[in-house]
Design a protein around this nucleic acid. Structure first.
Length: 199
DNA sequence: TCTAAGATGGCA
DNA sequence: GCCATCTTAGAA
C-alpha cells in the first residue's frame, strides 16, 4: 500500500482489502463530484460493508450483469437502481473476483449542489442523509456503475483532511439498515453527526 | 413519535 | 414478489 497523504486521492490499492476494513476507514474521507466546472464535496459519515458469503450481498447468489462491477478491481463504482426510483452508490473493494463493496449511505456536504432543485435543499444538513438522497444530491446514476473512481470520471475519493484527523468524530459500529438477511452482522459504521441517515 | 402505504422498475 | 429507499399522511 502506498503512503497516504491527507487530502490525497484514494487509489485502488488502498481499497484492495476486505469491505469490513474499508468501510470504517472511509468514514471521514471525502467524496468529490464534478459536473462541468462545478465541484461538490462531502465528507463520508455513514457506510456499510457487503462481502462474499454475506446473504445481504447482491453477489451472494451468482454473478449477473448488474453485480458484475462487484467482481472487478477495487476502486470501481457499483451503482444500482432501488425501489424503481433511487440509486445506491457503492465503492468496490478487495481483490478481483472477490465480490465486495462498501455502500456509501450519507455525506456531510461542504456546499449545496447548485444543480439541485430547491425542494430538495430544505433540510440543510440532511440533503445527503441516506443512500438514495446521496445519489440524487450528487447526480450519481446507474450509468456510473463499473466506472473507475477518478477525477477523469467526475467522481472520486480523497483521504481524510488534516482537520478531521486532528479532531475526529466518534465512529459508531452497528448493524445494517434496510435488509432482511444478514441483519445480525455489525457492518455499518457512522460518525455521530446530524448528516447520518439514522442513529 | 410512530406506523403504514404509495411511488416506481429491474431483478431473480 | 422482492428489494442495501424516501416521502407523506394519519394515528396516538
Amino acid at each position: 500500500m502506498s503512503l497516504v497523504r491527507a487530502g490525497s486521492i484514494v487509489e485502488a490499492d488502498w481499497l484492495a482489502r476486505p469491505a469490513r476494513e474499508v468501510a470504517p476507514a472511509l468514514i471521514g474521507c471525502t467524496l468529490v463530484r464534478q459536473v462541468g466546472d462545478r465541484v461538490v464535496r462531502g465528507v463520508i459519515v455513514e457506510t456499510e460493508a457487503y462481502e462474499p458469503g454475506d446473504p445481504a450481498c447482491h453477489a451472494y447468489r451468482r454473478r449477473t450483469a448488474r453485480n458484475e462491477p462487484m467482481f472487478g478491481m477495487a476502486g470501481l463504482a457499483y451503482v444500482y437502481l432501488i425501489y424503481g426510483m433511487y440509486c445506491c452508490f457503492n465503492v468496490v473493494t478487495d481483490l478481483e473476483d472477490v465480490p465486495s463493496a462498501v455502500l456509501i449511505r450519507a455525506l456531510q456536504l461542504e456546499s449545496i449542489p447548485p444543480w439541485l432543485e430547491p425542494r430538495h435543499t430544505r433540510s440543510r444538513h440532511r440533503i445527503a442523509a441516506g443512500p438514495g438522497k446521496l445519489s440524487r444530491a450528487l447526480g450519481i446514476e446507474v450509468s456510473h456503475s463499473g466506472r473507475r473512481l477518478e477525477p477523469k470520471q467526475g467522481l472520486w475519493l480523497q483521504h481524510r483532511d488534516r482537520p478531521w484527523s486532528d479532531n475526529p468524530l466518534a465512529i459508531v459500529q452497528t448493524t445494517r439498515i434496510g435488509i432482511s438477511r444478514g441483519t445480525e452482522l455489525p457492518w455499518r459504521w457512522y460518525a455521530d453527526c446530524a448528516a447520518v441517515s439514522k442513529r
